[in-house]
């Protein structure tokens, strides 16, 4: 969704940044874009050039005496650089390794200077708020979460794509309304929200109005705004394993609990999907997950266990099926498929 904004409306992002920078008297700005989004890079660079041409960037903007320079930096392939302190390290030319907070970047950030870091979507909202006023923005949304929110709806749902809805819309409205429901009328199982460190929200919460607070209650996050719909052909243990393996690979490797703890979580889930899991493994997932959440240095490690923890909470039966009954209800985990022939041979 950030990509779409940068490609489709780069000036809204730029304008939001210029206004925000002016507000805090910053003189240097960076837009950190993944190199995997070449068109976004191209468009935002062009937008910057255009802004310079019109005197909206550079020295003495519109004769105000205020100067601002914005530089585009392409990410070099490290998920952790989405974490603000790792991003700062990357901008400074370092390995994208996170730094402890406090001090927060707003106090000591890029090269020790106060630094504000915001998401593309946030900046894109700024011009609107300035123009229409805060009240207009707050007209939509819920008590705690104002405005609209863009979700990237994907997975096993009929209509995929970007969806902008007011805060407080329910999952059912998005998946079965805008999303057009499940393909082949399969059963809705869960929606994974917030990217690799988000959580899985089960069918029981289909009528949950989505905002920052409600998601937190069910163990998910707004995060990247990704909404991946899953039906009953998706194995929830496999999904948890998939997410933790992603985080384990993307860990910067600096702090021990994230570097090593995510690997242990992954290995435990591997065992479970291979039919070698035990009930103790479930306890271990929870207790280790908690240590990783509480002791990791940055957001990546602190949230990496979320998918494991949220699926354990909402889909414990499916874990028990893997561990106790040695079956995979979704039929995904190959080691647990009922292959009579094999069993017969062994006997």
């Amino acid at each position: 969704m950030d990509r779409a904004l940068l490609e489709g409306d780069p000036h809204s992002v730029l304008e939001g940044m210029i206004i925000s920078a002016y507000a805090i008297e910053a003189t240097k700005g960076f837009i950190y874009v993944r190199a995997e989004y070449p068109i976004a890079v191209l468009h935002i660079r062009k937008a910057i050039d255009e802004a310079h041409e019109r005197g909206l960037l550079g020295d003495n903007i519109l004769g105000s005496g205020y100067s601002l320079d914005i530089e585009v930096r392409e990410g070099a392939g490290a998920f952790v650089c989405g974490e603000e302190t790792a991003m700062i390290a990357s901008l400074e030319g370092e390995r994208g390794m996170a730094r402890p907070k406090p001090p927060y970047p707003a106090v000591r950030g890029y090269h020790g200077e106060p630094t504000i870091i915001n998401n593309v979507e946030t900046f894109a909202n700024v011009p609107l708020i300035i123009e229409e006023g805060g009240a207009a923005f707050a007209e939509s949304g819920t008590e705690g979460s104002k405005g609209t929110k863009i979700f990237a709806l994907a997975g096993q749902v009929n209509n995929t794509g970007l969806v902008e809805v007011p805060m407080g819309a329910t999952i059912r409205e998005i998946v079965f309304g805008v999303g057009g429901g499940m393909p082949r009328n399969r059963e809705f199982k869960a929606v994974q929200m917030g990217g690799p460190s988000g959580g899985c929200v089960p069918a029981a919460h289909l009528d949950l109005p989505i905002d920052y607070d409600s998601l937190k209650e069910v163990g998910a996050i707004m995060g990247s705004g990704g909404m991946i719909v899953m039906d009953n052909t998706t194995c929830i243990v496999d999904i948890a394993r998939y997410f933790i393996s992603f985080c384990a690979e993307e860990s910067c490797g600096l702090c021990a609990p994230c570097r090593l703890g995510t690997v242990q979580l992954e290995e435990t889930l591997n065992r479970i999907t291979e039919g070698k899991g035990t009930l103790e493994d479930l306890d271990k997932l929870e207790s280790l997950g908690e240590v990783v959440q509480q002791t990791s240095l940055c957001g990546l490690g602190q949230t990496a266990p979320n998918p494991v923890m949220s699926t354990l909470r909402h889909f414990r039966d499916e874990y028990l099926a893997h561990v106790v009954d040695k079956t995979c209800p979704a039929g995904v985990c190959t080691a647990l498929l009922p292959v009579e022939a094999t069993v017969g041979k062994e006997k």
Binding site: A76, A78, R95, G155, Q156, Q192, G226
Partner: peptide, 26 residues
Amino acid sequence: FYAQFYLEEHGRHTVRVCRGTACHVR
């Protein structure tokens, strides 16, 4: 550190398979 960089000579074309969540479930 950064996945983008190669220390060995690379192919003329790069095939990248997305392993994002949506792709994973599909």
